[in-house]
């Protein structure tokens, strides 16, 4: 198991405090900058490893950054604190984005990112909770995160704990039936302490979601299963923050975050081939320059 980096965790704490005290424009700028730093870190990880899921990583990073840097009640130095909020990345193939985010928050040293996908690294191609602090359950095969998160939300309720469970789902993975089993259970049990965030970039590995197996109308589907639904621009950090922290009714909440796969890197945006293509050294330089703007 990797251990926390106290210095980075202290920076993260300062960031959270500054965010709390800041006005909207400053807040937006803080999260945008932080997310793009993680994008750059992620591109380097993928370049070094020669593998990864770059398109989905870029798509989900604003969601992850907003959660870890302005929403989740967690402590990078006490990753097993009992009443922490739970975060589950159901789309486990975007582990790179999660690792970049966790390292930036101090859950483990950022230097560890250099080992991504290398022999015996804790940072496997899909996240492993036994090795990486901040990872709550092992994901990778799709359609697993929501049922486990429902169990976590049921547990929180049984313990009368105020902790909230956040799970990030890929849109393509909603084609897995297990999600809908869990969506039914969450709706039936009125799990208002559960928020599912759909990274709605409309692309799956091989093609557009709507060309493969239609998901729309996704909002109606979740509503029909007994959920409240919010739809936001998944790259608008303040909109995400607001959706993640909005007062909850007596139902689970689905945040449909409309995103662009490959977001932030012009030549990757909304292009299906960048699902798991590996950028060249030159492409990384170009991307880095775009992200620094």
């Amino acid at each position: 198991m990797l251990v926390a980096d106290p210095g980075t965790a202290a920076d993260w704490r300062r960031f959270r405090q500054e965010f709390t005290d800041a006005g909207p424009e400053r807040r937006r700028e803080m999260l945008r900058e932080r997310a793009n730093q993680s994008r750059t870190a992620d591109l380097h990880m993928i370049g070094r490893a020669g593998l990864g899921h770059v398109g989905g990583d870029m798509s989900v990073l604003d969601i992850l950054t907003t959660l870890f840097f302005s929403v989740l009640r967690v402590d990078p130095e006490k990753p097993e604190w009992d009443d922490r909020d739970r975060f589950v990345l159901s789309k486990g193939h975007t582990a790179g984005a999660l690792y970049a985010t966790l390292a930036a928050a101090g859950f483990f040293p950022e230097a560890e990112l250099q080992t991504f996908a290398g022999p015996l690294s804790a940072l496997n191609g899909h996240p492993n909770r036994v090795k990486v602090p901040g990872v709550e359950t092992n994901t990778g095969p799709l359609g697993h995160g929501l049922p486990v998160s429902v169990g976590m939300a049921v547990a929180a309720r049984l313990s009368s704990s105020s902790r909230h469970v956040y799970v990030v789902l890929g849109d393509g993975e909603l084609q897995e039936g297990s999600n809908w089993e869990a969506a039914m259970t969450a709706g039936h049990r009125r799990l208002s302490n559960l928020t599912a965030v759909v990274d709605r970039n409309r692309l799956q590995q091989g093609a557009r979601t709507e060309e493969t197996n239609t998901l729309d109308p996704l909002d109606d589907k979740f509503r029909a299963f007994g959920w409240d639904v919010l739809e936001v621009d998944g790259h608008d950090h303040l909109a995400l923050h607001e959706a993640f922290t909005a007062p909850r009714g007596d139902r689970p909440t689905c945040v449909i975050a409309n995103t662009v796969k490959g977001r932030g890197v012009s030549f990757m945006e909304d292009r299906v081939e960048w699902h798991h293509k590996v950028p060249s050294a030159e492409q990384i330089v170009t991307a880095e320059a775009e992200l620094a703007r």
């Binding site: 739970r86 909770r129 709550e136 359950t137 697993h144 929501l146 049922p147 486990v148 998160s149 429902v150 169990g151 976590m152 939300a153 049921v154 547990a155 929180a156 313990s159 297990s178 089993e181 869990a182 039914m184 259970t185």
Partner: peptide, 12 residues
């Protein structure tokens, strides 16, 4: 769902 929910409870 049943097994996933079980895992979520165990992890809590």
């Amino acid at each position: 769902d049943m097994v996933g929910v079980g895992a979520g409870l165990a992890l809590s």
